[in-house]
C-alpha cells in the first residue's frame, strides 16, 4: 500500500503556488496537512501527477483579528485553533468542535484549510464555518474573491474552489456579547467521523434565541444549514414545545439517505435528538423529555 509515483513542487510564495497550479491544473493537488490526501494516496484512491506542497507558505498560517473579524489562515494547524485564546474568545464554536476532530497526532499536522477544501460531509469544521457565517478568501490567477461558507460546499467532496485557485483564509465575524455556541456530535468512537452532528451559533438572552444558525454534518453529501428549524427557534422562547416543533421542522431541512453504515431514518433520529440537546446546551434547559 504505497503511494503511486508523483512529482513534487514546493513553492516559495503564494504567487509561485498560483503559477504552479496554472501549469498543472487538474493534474496537481495542493498538499497541506496531508492527513486525508496522503492516506488516499497510500491507498491508491487518488493519483495526481504533481503535489504542490504549500507547507512552507508561512503567510497562509496564523490566527488574527482585524476589523471585527477573526481571520484563520488556511495553513493553521488544528492544534493551534484548539488552543488559541483568540478563537476561544471570538469563535468559541470552533474551540468546542476541535477536540472532536480526529486525534491529537492528526490535529498536530492537519490544517484548517485542508479540512475545508477536502469537504468531507461528516467533518466538523465545514459545518462550524457555516454556522459562524464565515467567508472564505480564495486566491487565483484572476485575483482574490470571497465565498460565504453556506455557498462554498456544493456536493460530496465538492466546493466552489475552481482549478487554479487556492483557499487562503477564513474570515469569521467575531461573536458579539450575546453570541453563544453549541456543538454536539455522535460518533461511535472518540475521534471518528460523526454519524450525525451539528454546530449552532446564536444570540441568546435567557431562553430566547435570535440569529440562529444551525449547521448539520454527517447527514447529507455536504453540510446542511437547517433554516426551517432555525426560524422556528427564532420565534420565541425555547420552550420544550418550541424545540419539539423545531425538531419536526428538521424534516424540511434534512433528507438523510441510507448508506452502508446507517439508515437515513437513524441519522434523522439522531439529528432530532442532537438539535434538542444543543438548544438545551444554549439555554441550559433540561430537554430530555422534549426529545423524541
Amino acid at each position: 500500500m504505497k503511494a503511486p509515483a508523483f512529482s513534487y513542487l514546493r513553492p516559495e510564495n503564494i504567487s509561485q503556488a498560483i503559477d504552479f497550479i496554472d501549469i498543472y491544473g487538474d493534474e496537481a493537488r495542493w498538499l497541506a496537512g496531508g492527513q486525508s490526501l496522503l492516506a488516499a494516496l497510500n491507498m491508491r484512491l487518488a493519483a495526481p501527477s504533481v503535489l504542490i506542497d504549500i507547507n512552507g507558505l508561512s503567510e497562509l498560517a496564523g490566527i488574527s483579528v482585524n476589523a471585527g473579524k477573526l481571520i484563520i489562515g488556511a495553513l493553521t494547524r488544528h492544534r493551534e485553533i484548539e488552543h488559541s485564546p483568540l478563537v476561544a474568545q471570538h469563535a468559541s464554536l470552533l474551540a468546542l468542535a476541535m477536540p472532536h476532530v480526529a486525534h491529537a497526532a492528526v490535529r498536530n499536522r492537519g490544517t484548517f484549510g485542508g479540512s475545508i477544501a477536502f469537504a468531507d460531509p461528516a467533518a466538523e469544521l465545514p459545518a462550524c464555518c457555516i454556522a459562524l457565517d464565515a467567508e472564505f478568501v480564495i486566491v487565483g490567477r484572476g485575483g482574490e474573491r470571497r465565498v460565504r461558507a453556506r455557498h462554498f460546499f456544493t456536493g460530496l467532496y465538492e466546493t466552489a474552489l475552481q482549478t487554479g485557485e487556492i483557499l487562503v483564509a477564513a474570515e469569521i465575524p467575531c461573536a458579539r456579547d450575546k453570541g453563544r455556541a453549541a456543538f454536539r456530535e455522535l460518533a461511535r468512537r472518540h475521534g471518528d467521523y460523526a454519524i450525525a452532528g451539528l454546530a449552532v451559533q446564536a444570540a441568546v438572552e435567557g431562553d430566547v434565541l435570535r440569529d440562529v444558525n444551525i449547521a448539520f454534518f454527517g447527514v447529507d453529501s455536504k453540510p446542511v444549514l437547517a433554516e426551517h428549524a432555525a426560524s422556528v427557534l427564532e420565534q420565541g422562547a425555547a420552550t420544550p414545545a418550541r424545540i419539539e416543533q423545531a425538531q419536526h421542522q428538521l424534516a424540511q431541512d434534512l433528507a438523510p439517505q441510507d448508506d452502508v453504515h446507517y439508515s437515513g431514518a437513524m441519522r434523522m433520529q439522531l439529528a432530532r435528538v442532537l438539535l434538542a440537546r444543543a438548544i438545551g446546551d444554549l439555554v441550559n434547559l433540561e430537554t430530555k423529555s422534549a426529545a423524541r
Binding site: M1, K2, Y8, L31, G34, Q35, L38, A39, N42, M43, D53, N55, R79, H103, A104, A105, V106, N108, R109
Partner: peptide, 26 residues
C-alpha cells in the same frame, strides 16, 4: 498506512504526528 492505527506516531518538531501521513521530503 492510512493514519488510523497510530503505530507510526513519532515526534516532528516537538509534536507527535503520523509518519505514514507525511512524506519524507516534508
Amino acid at each position: 498506512e492510512h493514519g488510523v492505527c497510530g503505530a507510526c506516531t513519532l515526534r516532528c518538531n516537538g509534536v507527535i504526528v503520523r509518519a505514514c501521513l507525511m512524506l519524507a521530503v516534508q
